[in-house]
Design a binder for these strands. Structure first.
Lengths: 214, 214
DNA sequence: CGTTGCATACCGAGTAGTCGGTATGTCACT
DNA sequence: AGTGACATACCGACTACTCGGTATGCAACG
Protein backbone atom coordinates (compact mmCIF):
# COMPACT_ATOMS: atom_id res chain seq x y z
CA UNK A 1 0.00 0.00 0.00
CA UNK A 2 1.20 3.44 -0.75
CA UNK A 3 1.61 5.74 2.20
CA UNK A 4 0.11 8.67 0.33
CA UNK A 5 -3.31 7.10 0.11
CA UNK A 6 -3.52 6.11 3.73
CA UNK A 7 -5.07 8.85 5.86
CA UNK A 8 -3.74 8.00 9.31
CA UNK A 9 -0.71 5.73 9.50
CA UNK A 10 0.19 7.30 12.83
CA UNK A 11 3.67 5.84 12.74
CA UNK A 12 4.36 7.18 9.30
CA UNK A 13 7.85 8.42 8.86
CA UNK A 14 7.22 12.04 8.03
CA UNK A 15 10.11 14.19 9.12
CA UNK A 16 8.36 17.48 8.57
CA UNK A 17 5.31 16.56 10.60
CA UNK A 18 7.41 15.06 13.37
CA UNK A 19 9.49 18.20 13.63
CA UNK A 20 6.37 20.35 13.72
CA UNK A 21 4.82 18.21 16.46
CA UNK A 22 7.92 18.55 18.61
CA UNK A 23 7.98 22.29 18.00
CA UNK A 24 4.37 22.75 18.95
CA UNK A 25 4.64 20.61 22.06
CA UNK A 26 7.76 22.50 23.10
CA UNK A 27 5.95 25.78 22.62
CA UNK A 28 3.14 24.68 24.92
CA UNK A 29 5.55 23.47 27.57
CA UNK A 30 7.57 26.67 27.40
CA UNK A 31 4.40 28.71 27.64
CA UNK A 32 3.39 26.80 30.74
CA UNK A 33 6.69 26.41 32.55
CA UNK A 34 9.22 28.65 30.88
CA UNK A 35 12.30 27.50 29.02
CA UNK A 36 14.14 26.27 32.08
CA UNK A 37 11.00 24.67 33.39
CA UNK A 38 10.38 22.80 30.17
CA UNK A 39 11.35 19.15 30.53
CA UNK A 40 12.29 17.42 27.33
CA UNK A 41 10.75 14.24 28.67
CA UNK A 42 7.42 16.01 29.02
CA UNK A 43 7.64 17.31 25.47
CA UNK A 44 8.36 13.82 24.22
CA UNK A 45 5.64 12.23 26.29
CA UNK A 46 3.03 14.61 24.90
CA UNK A 47 4.10 13.80 21.36
CA UNK A 48 4.58 10.06 21.86
CA UNK A 49 8.11 10.37 20.54
CA UNK A 50 11.44 9.68 22.19
CA UNK A 51 14.82 11.25 22.66
CA UNK A 52 16.14 9.98 19.38
CA UNK A 53 13.52 11.84 17.39
CA UNK A 54 14.14 15.06 19.25
CA UNK A 55 17.89 15.01 18.90
CA UNK A 56 17.60 14.01 15.29
CA UNK A 57 15.71 17.22 14.50
CA UNK A 58 17.31 19.58 17.04
CA UNK A 59 20.93 19.53 18.17
CA UNK A 60 20.13 20.72 21.71
CA UNK A 61 17.45 22.00 24.02
CA UNK A 62 18.66 25.51 23.32
CA UNK A 63 18.28 25.07 19.57
CA UNK A 64 14.76 23.80 20.13
CA UNK A 65 14.00 26.95 22.12
CA UNK A 66 15.39 29.15 19.37
CA UNK A 67 13.26 27.36 16.80
CA UNK A 68 10.14 27.91 18.91
CA UNK A 69 10.81 31.64 18.86
CA UNK A 70 11.62 31.87 15.18
CA UNK A 71 8.89 29.63 13.87
CA UNK A 72 6.03 29.47 16.38
CA UNK A 73 6.03 32.74 18.30
CA UNK A 74 6.99 34.87 15.33
CA UNK A 75 4.08 33.41 13.40
CA UNK A 76 1.64 34.23 16.21
CA UNK A 77 2.67 37.88 16.19
CA UNK A 78 2.34 38.07 12.44
CA UNK A 79 -1.08 36.48 12.56
CA UNK A 80 -2.52 38.52 15.45
CA UNK A 81 -1.00 41.92 14.75
CA UNK A 82 1.14 42.51 11.72
CA UNK A 83 -1.03 41.07 8.96
CA UNK A 84 -4.35 42.46 10.29
CA UNK A 85 -2.78 45.91 10.52
CA UNK A 86 -1.27 45.72 7.07
CA UNK A 87 -4.56 44.68 5.56
CA UNK A 88 -6.70 47.19 7.42
CA UNK A 89 -8.07 50.29 5.74
CA UNK A 90 -8.61 51.98 9.14
CA UNK A 91 -5.35 51.08 10.92
CA UNK A 92 -5.92 53.09 14.09
CA UNK A 93 -9.37 51.64 14.54
CA UNK A 94 -7.95 48.17 14.00
CA UNK A 95 -5.37 48.79 16.71
CA UNK A 96 -8.05 49.95 19.14
CA UNK A 97 -10.17 46.93 18.26
CA UNK A 98 -7.29 44.59 18.93
CA UNK A 99 -6.64 46.22 22.30
CA UNK A 100 -10.28 46.10 23.32
CA UNK A 101 -10.77 42.51 22.29
CA UNK A 102 -7.98 41.56 24.69
CA UNK A 103 -10.48 41.29 27.52
CA UNK A 104 -12.40 38.69 25.57
CA UNK A 105 -9.55 36.35 26.34
CA UNK A 106 -11.25 35.11 29.50
CA UNK A 107 -10.48 31.46 29.87
CA UNK A 108 -7.73 31.69 27.29
CA UNK A 109 -4.38 30.30 28.43
CA UNK A 110 -2.93 33.76 27.84
CA UNK A 111 -4.78 35.14 30.87
CA UNK A 112 -3.37 32.51 33.19
CA UNK A 113 -0.02 31.83 31.55
CA UNK A 114 0.74 35.21 30.08
CA UNK A 115 2.04 36.22 26.68
CA UNK A 116 4.42 33.59 25.27
CA UNK A 117 6.61 36.25 23.69
CA UNK A 118 6.94 38.40 26.78
CA UNK A 119 7.34 35.43 29.11
CA UNK A 120 10.30 34.13 27.19
CA UNK A 121 11.78 37.58 26.83
CA UNK A 122 11.61 38.27 30.55
CA UNK A 123 13.06 34.89 31.40
CA UNK A 124 15.79 34.48 28.82
CA UNK A 125 16.92 37.86 27.55
CA UNK A 126 19.31 38.55 30.39
CA UNK A 127 20.63 35.01 30.38
CA UNK A 128 21.18 34.21 26.74
CA UNK A 129 22.10 36.58 23.95
CA UNK A 130 20.81 34.19 21.29
CA UNK A 131 17.35 34.24 22.79
CA UNK A 132 17.53 37.98 23.28
CA UNK A 133 18.29 38.71 19.64
CA UNK A 134 15.64 36.37 18.30
CA UNK A 135 12.99 37.72 20.66
CA UNK A 136 14.01 41.28 19.88
CA UNK A 137 13.44 40.59 16.20
CA UNK A 138 9.89 39.47 16.96
CA UNK A 139 9.27 42.56 19.08
CA UNK A 140 10.62 44.74 16.29
CA UNK A 141 8.32 43.16 13.75
CA UNK A 142 5.39 43.88 16.01
CA UNK A 143 6.62 47.40 16.70
CA UNK A 144 7.32 48.27 13.09
CA UNK A 145 3.93 46.88 12.11
CA UNK A 146 2.38 49.33 14.55
CA UNK A 147 4.51 52.21 13.32
CA UNK A 148 3.51 51.53 9.72
CA UNK A 149 -0.14 51.38 10.69
CA UNK A 150 0.07 54.63 12.64
CA UNK A 151 1.85 56.40 9.82
CA UNK A 152 -0.82 55.28 7.40
CA UNK A 153 -3.46 56.51 9.81
CA UNK A 154 -1.71 59.85 9.97
CA UNK A 155 -1.46 60.18 6.19
CA UNK A 156 -5.05 59.18 5.62
CA UNK A 157 -6.31 61.66 8.18
CA UNK A 158 -7.62 58.95 10.48
CA UNK A 159 -5.22 60.06 13.19
CA UNK A 160 -4.15 63.47 14.37
CA UNK A 161 -1.04 64.82 12.71
CA UNK A 162 1.95 65.60 14.84
CA UNK A 163 1.92 62.52 17.01
CA UNK A 164 5.08 60.49 17.42
CA UNK A 165 4.28 57.13 15.88
CA UNK A 166 7.33 55.43 17.30
CA UNK A 167 6.50 56.53 20.84
CA UNK A 168 2.90 55.46 20.48
CA UNK A 169 3.85 52.10 19.05
CA UNK A 170 6.28 51.53 21.90
CA UNK A 171 3.80 52.31 24.61
CA UNK A 172 1.14 50.17 22.96
CA UNK A 173 3.45 47.19 23.09
CA UNK A 174 4.51 48.02 26.63
CA UNK A 175 0.99 48.54 27.90
CA UNK A 176 -0.37 45.42 26.24
CA UNK A 177 2.39 43.29 27.69
CA UNK A 178 2.03 44.99 31.05
CA UNK A 179 -1.72 44.39 31.06
CA UNK A 180 -1.36 40.72 30.26
CA UNK A 181 1.33 40.35 32.89
CA UNK A 182 -0.77 41.99 35.60
CA UNK A 183 -3.76 39.88 34.71
CA UNK A 184 -1.78 36.69 34.85
CA UNK A 185 -0.55 37.57 38.30
CA UNK A 186 -3.74 38.99 39.74
CA UNK A 187 -5.88 36.28 38.18
CA UNK A 188 -8.80 38.63 38.15
CA UNK A 189 -10.27 39.79 34.91
CA UNK A 190 -11.08 43.27 36.15
CA UNK A 191 -7.43 44.21 35.90
CA UNK A 192 -7.38 43.28 32.26
CA UNK A 193 -10.55 45.25 31.61
CA UNK A 194 -9.21 48.28 33.47
CA UNK A 195 -6.03 48.14 31.43
CA UNK A 196 -7.62 47.73 28.05
CA UNK A 197 -10.25 50.38 28.79
CA UNK A 198 -7.63 52.91 29.85
CA UNK A 199 -5.38 52.12 26.92
CA UNK A 200 -8.23 52.24 24.43
CA UNK A 201 -9.49 55.55 25.78
CA UNK A 202 -5.98 56.94 25.46
CA UNK A 203 -5.72 55.74 21.87
CA UNK A 204 -9.09 57.28 21.09
CA UNK A 205 -7.69 60.68 22.01
CA UNK A 206 -5.45 60.26 18.98
CA UNK A 207 -8.33 59.93 16.55
CA UNK A 208 -8.46 62.95 14.26
CA UNK A 209 -12.13 63.65 13.97
CA UNK A 210 -13.34 65.21 17.24
CA UNK A 211 -16.84 63.94 16.49
CA UNK A 212 -15.78 60.43 17.40
CA UNK A 213 -14.04 61.35 20.63
CA UNK A 214 -15.37 61.85 24.16
CA UNK B 1 44.79 35.84 69.77
CA UNK B 2 41.28 36.37 70.83
CA UNK B 3 38.68 36.70 68.15
CA UNK B 4 36.72 39.23 70.14
CA UNK B 5 39.44 41.86 70.06
CA UNK B 6 39.80 41.64 66.32
CA UNK B 7 38.06 44.52 64.61
CA UNK B 8 36.51 42.45 61.87
CA UNK B 9 35.53 39.18 63.47
CA UNK B 10 34.10 38.15 60.15
CA UNK B 11 32.86 34.96 61.68
CA UNK B 12 30.90 36.69 64.35
CA UNK B 13 27.81 34.80 65.32
CA UNK B 14 25.01 37.22 64.59
CA UNK B 15 21.89 35.42 63.49
CA UNK B 16 20.02 38.50 62.37
CA UNK B 17 22.83 39.76 60.19
CA UNK B 18 23.47 36.33 58.73
CA UNK B 19 19.84 35.95 57.80
CA UNK B 20 19.79 39.38 56.20
CA UNK B 21 22.96 38.62 54.21
CA UNK B 22 21.42 35.43 52.85
CA UNK B 23 18.21 37.26 51.99
CA UNK B 24 20.02 40.01 50.15
CA UNK B 25 22.26 37.62 48.24
CA UNK B 26 19.24 35.54 47.29
CA UNK B 27 17.48 38.65 46.06
CA UNK B 28 20.39 39.52 43.80
CA UNK B 29 20.60 35.99 42.43
CA UNK B 30 16.87 35.85 41.81
CA UNK B 31 17.02 39.20 40.11
CA UNK B 32 19.76 37.97 37.83
CA UNK B 33 18.65 34.43 37.11
CA UNK B 34 15.10 34.03 38.32
CA UNK B 35 13.96 31.76 41.11
CA UNK B 36 14.61 28.53 39.25
CA UNK B 37 17.88 29.84 37.98
CA UNK B 38 19.05 30.82 41.44
CA UNK B 39 21.53 28.24 42.77
CA UNK B 40 21.75 27.99 46.50
CA UNK B 41 25.44 27.28 46.20
CA UNK B 42 25.92 30.60 44.42
CA UNK B 43 24.01 32.41 47.14
CA UNK B 44 26.17 30.79 49.75
CA UNK B 45 29.39 31.44 47.87
CA UNK B 46 28.63 35.14 47.60
CA UNK B 47 27.98 35.35 51.33
CA UNK B 48 30.84 33.10 52.40
CA UNK B 49 28.40 30.88 54.27
CA UNK B 50 27.46 27.26 53.81
CA UNK B 51 24.43 25.03 53.62
CA UNK B 52 24.12 24.74 57.35
CA UNK B 53 23.60 28.47 57.78
CA UNK B 54 21.03 28.63 55.04
CA UNK B 55 18.97 25.71 56.26
CA UNK B 56 19.21 26.96 59.80
CA UNK B 57 17.43 30.18 58.82
CA UNK B 58 15.17 28.93 56.02
CA UNK B 59 13.46 25.55 55.84
CA UNK B 60 13.65 25.33 52.04
CA UNK B 61 14.55 27.16 48.87
CA UNK B 62 10.88 28.00 48.42
CA UNK B 63 10.66 29.59 51.85
CA UNK B 64 13.73 31.64 51.02
CA UNK B 65 12.03 32.84 47.87
CA UNK B 66 8.89 33.78 49.79
CA UNK B 67 10.96 35.73 52.31
CA UNK B 68 12.66 37.64 49.51
CA UNK B 69 9.26 38.75 48.26
CA UNK B 70 7.85 39.66 51.65
CA UNK B 71 10.88 41.38 53.06
CA UNK B 72 13.10 42.65 50.24
CA UNK B 73 10.85 43.31 47.26
CA UNK B 74 7.98 44.65 49.33
CA UNK B 75 10.33 47.11 50.96
CA UNK B 76 11.58 48.35 47.59
CA UNK B 77 8.06 49.11 46.43
CA UNK B 78 7.27 50.93 49.64
CA UNK B 79 10.44 52.96 49.38
CA UNK B 80 10.20 53.89 45.69
CA UNK B 81 6.47 54.42 45.34
CA UNK B 82 4.16 54.12 48.31
CA UNK B 83 5.90 56.32 50.84
CA UNK B 84 6.86 59.11 48.38
CA UNK B 85 3.27 59.26 47.18
CA UNK B 86 1.86 59.28 50.69
CA UNK B 87 4.16 62.09 51.70
CA UNK B 88 3.66 64.19 48.60
CA UNK B 89 1.51 67.30 48.60
CA UNK B 90 1.18 67.15 44.78
CA UNK B 91 0.55 63.45 44.27
CA UNK B 92 -0.11 63.53 40.53
CA UNK B 93 3.04 65.52 39.92
CA UNK B 94 4.96 63.07 42.04
CA UNK B 95 3.66 60.19 39.96
CA UNK B 96 4.69 61.92 36.75
CA UNK B 97 8.09 62.66 38.25
CA UNK B 98 8.59 59.04 39.19
CA UNK B 99 7.66 57.92 35.70
CA UNK B 100 9.94 60.41 34.03
CA UNK B 101 12.90 59.64 36.21
CA UNK B 102 12.70 56.03 35.08
CA UNK B 103 14.89 56.83 32.10
CA UNK B 104 17.60 58.00 34.41
CA UNK B 105 18.13 54.38 35.27
CA UNK B 106 20.76 53.99 32.56
CA UNK B 107 23.38 51.61 33.82
CA UNK B 108 21.13 50.48 36.62
CA UNK B 109 20.66 46.71 36.86
CA UNK B 110 16.95 47.28 36.36
CA UNK B 111 17.50 48.21 32.72
CA UNK B 112 19.37 45.01 31.99
CA UNK B 113 17.73 42.63 34.44
CA UNK B 114 14.25 44.08 34.61
CA UNK B 115 12.00 44.79 37.56
CA UNK B 116 12.53 42.27 40.36
CA UNK B 117 8.85 42.27 41.23
CA UNK B 118 7.59 41.75 37.72
CA UNK B 119 10.28 39.21 36.86
CA UNK B 120 9.30 36.99 39.75
CA UNK B 121 5.62 37.45 39.05
CA UNK B 122 5.96 36.44 35.41
CA UNK B 123 8.09 33.45 36.29
CA UNK B 124 6.39 32.07 39.35
CA UNK B 125 2.76 33.14 39.42
CA UNK B 126 1.49 30.39 37.14
CA UNK B 127 3.65 27.78 38.82
CA UNK B 128 3.21 28.41 42.53
CA UNK B 129 0.19 29.79 44.31
CA UNK B 130 2.25 30.85 47.33
CA UNK B 131 4.43 33.07 45.19
CA UNK B 132 1.39 34.38 43.34
CA UNK B 133 -0.39 35.50 46.49
CA UNK B 134 2.65 37.14 48.01
CA UNK B 135 3.53 38.95 44.78
CA UNK B 136 -0.08 39.97 44.33
CA UNK B 137 -0.02 41.59 47.76
CA UNK B 138 2.98 43.67 46.74
CA UNK B 139 1.28 44.70 43.51
CA UNK B 140 -1.82 45.64 45.46
CA UNK B 141 0.17 47.81 47.84
CA UNK B 142 1.67 49.62 44.88
CA UNK B 143 -1.71 49.89 43.17
CA UNK B 144 -3.59 51.11 46.21
CA UNK B 145 -0.83 53.63 46.87
CA UNK B 146 -1.44 55.01 43.41
CA UNK B 147 -5.20 55.01 43.86
CA UNK B 148 -4.89 56.92 47.12
CA UNK B 149 -2.58 59.43 45.50
CA UNK B 150 -4.91 59.93 42.54
CA UNK B 151 -7.92 60.36 44.78
CA UNK B 152 -6.10 62.97 46.80
CA UNK B 153 -5.13 64.71 43.57
CA UNK B 154 -8.75 64.67 42.54
CA UNK B 155 -9.98 66.10 45.82
CA UNK B 156 -7.34 68.79 45.96
CA UNK B 157 -8.12 69.90 42.42
CA UNK B 158 -4.72 68.89 41.12
CA UNK B 159 -6.34 66.36 38.80
CA UNK B 160 -9.43 66.54 36.65
CA UNK B 161 -12.58 65.25 38.32
CA UNK B 162 -14.40 62.35 36.76
CA UNK B 163 -11.37 60.18 35.99
CA UNK B 164 -11.35 56.57 37.12
CA UNK B 165 -8.52 56.35 39.61
CA UNK B 166 -8.49 52.57 39.67
CA UNK B 167 -8.17 52.35 35.89
CA UNK B 168 -5.43 54.94 35.83
CA UNK B 169 -3.53 53.25 38.62
CA UNK B 170 -3.76 49.94 36.82
CA UNK B 171 -2.46 51.23 33.55
CA UNK B 172 0.35 53.08 35.26
CA UNK B 173 1.55 49.85 36.82
CA UNK B 174 1.08 47.97 33.57
CA UNK B 175 2.83 50.56 31.46
CA UNK B 176 5.75 50.95 33.85
CA UNK B 177 6.30 47.21 33.99
CA UNK B 178 5.85 46.92 30.25
CA UNK B 179 8.38 49.70 29.66
CA UNK B 180 10.98 48.12 31.86
CA UNK B 181 10.41 44.76 30.25
CA UNK B 182 10.81 46.10 26.74
CA UNK B 183 13.94 47.96 27.70
CA UNK B 184 15.49 44.92 29.25
CA UNK B 185 14.88 42.93 26.10
CA UNK B 186 15.76 45.60 23.55
CA UNK B 187 18.78 46.76 25.53
CA UNK B 188 18.46 50.17 23.99
CA UNK B 189 17.62 53.12 26.12
CA UNK B 190 15.49 54.81 23.47
CA UNK B 191 12.69 52.37 24.13
CA UNK B 192 12.60 53.34 27.77
CA UNK B 193 12.60 57.02 26.89
CA UNK B 194 9.82 56.54 24.34
CA UNK B 195 7.76 54.70 26.91
CA UNK B 196 8.21 57.12 29.75
CA UNK B 197 7.65 60.12 27.49
CA UNK B 198 4.40 58.71 26.13
CA UNK B 199 3.17 57.67 29.55
CA UNK B 200 4.08 61.00 31.10
CA UNK B 201 2.39 62.95 28.32
CA UNK B 202 -0.72 60.86 28.85
CA UNK B 203 -0.66 61.51 32.59
CA UNK B 204 -0.27 65.22 31.95
CA UNK B 205 -3.58 65.19 30.11
CA UNK B 206 -5.13 64.39 33.47
CA UNK B 207 -3.82 67.51 35.15
CA UNK B 208 -6.71 69.80 36.02
CA UNK B 209 -5.34 73.24 35.18
CA UNK B 210 -5.38 73.63 31.39
CA UNK B 211 -2.60 76.19 31.67
CA UNK B 212 -0.12 73.41 32.35
CA UNK B 213 -1.25 71.18 29.52
CA UNK B 214 -0.32 71.10 25.84
C1' DC C 1 26.41 22.14 79.80
C1' DG C 2 22.71 22.80 76.96
C1' DT C 3 21.33 25.68 73.26
C1' DT C 4 22.45 28.53 69.38
C1' DG C 5 24.62 29.17 64.98
C1' DC C 6 26.87 27.54 61.83
C1' DA C 7 30.40 24.01 58.88
C1' DT C 8 31.21 19.68 56.46
C1' DA C 9 30.22 15.54 54.18
C1' DC C 10 27.03 13.13 51.89
C1' DC C 11 22.54 11.55 49.67
C1' DG C 12 19.43 10.74 45.83
C1' DA C 13 16.10 12.32 42.64
C1' DG C 14 15.93 14.28 38.41
C1' DT C 15 17.72 15.85 33.72
C1' DA C 16 20.17 17.06 29.48
C1' DG C 17 22.56 14.67 26.41
C1' DT C 18 24.81 10.16 24.20
C1' DC C 19 25.11 6.13 21.63
C1' DG C 20 24.40 1.66 19.71
C1' DG C 21 20.80 -0.26 17.40
C1' DT C 22 16.76 -0.81 14.04
C1' DA C 23 13.23 -0.25 10.74
C1' DT C 24 12.01 2.14 6.70
C1' DG C 25 12.60 4.36 2.39
C1' DT C 26 15.54 5.15 -1.96
C1' DC C 27 18.73 4.91 -5.48
C1' DA C 28 22.10 2.32 -8.47
C1' DC C 29 23.25 -1.38 -10.96
C1' DT C 30 22.39 -5.44 -13.43
C1' DA D 1 12.21 -6.50 -11.34
C1' DG D 2 15.18 -7.75 -7.91
C1' DT D 3 19.02 -6.96 -4.89
C1' DG D 4 22.58 -4.88 -2.54
C1' DA D 5 24.23 -0.31 -0.49
C1' DC D 6 23.31 3.48 1.88
C1' DA D 7 20.79 7.37 3.88
C1' DT D 8 16.86 8.72 6.71
C1' DA D 9 14.10 8.69 10.80
C1' DC D 10 13.51 7.17 15.15
C1' DC D 11 14.03 4.07 19.54
C1' DG D 12 15.42 3.61 24.42
C1' DA D 13 18.72 2.36 27.75
C1' DC D 14 22.47 4.49 29.72
C1' DT D 15 25.65 8.17 31.56
C1' DA D 16 27.48 12.11 33.68
C1' DC D 17 26.31 15.60 36.44
C1' DT D 18 23.70 19.13 38.86
C1' DC D 19 21.43 20.68 42.81
C1' DG D 20 18.11 20.80 46.68
C1' DG D 21 18.09 18.76 50.87
C1' DT D 22 19.82 16.02 55.17
C1' DA D 23 22.70 14.13 58.91
C1' DT D 24 26.18 14.94 61.74
C1' DG D 25 29.88 17.51 63.98
C1' DC D 26 31.50 21.34 66.62
C1' DA D 27 32.74 25.74 68.46
C1' DA D 28 31.01 29.65 70.98
C1' DC D 29 27.93 31.81 74.08
C1' DG D 30 25.09 32.34 78.30
Amino acid sequence: MSTTLNTVSNNERNAGRTRARILHAAFKEIHRSGFHGMRLNDVLESTGLTKGALYYHFPSKLALGYAVVEEVIEEIVLKLWVRPLNESRNPLKTIIDRVECLDQLVGDPVTTLGCPLNNLAQEMSPLDEGFRQRLDRVFQHWHSGLVNALERAKNSGEMQPGVNSTQIATIIVAAVEGCIGLTKNAQCIERLQDCTAALASYLRTLVANPAGAR
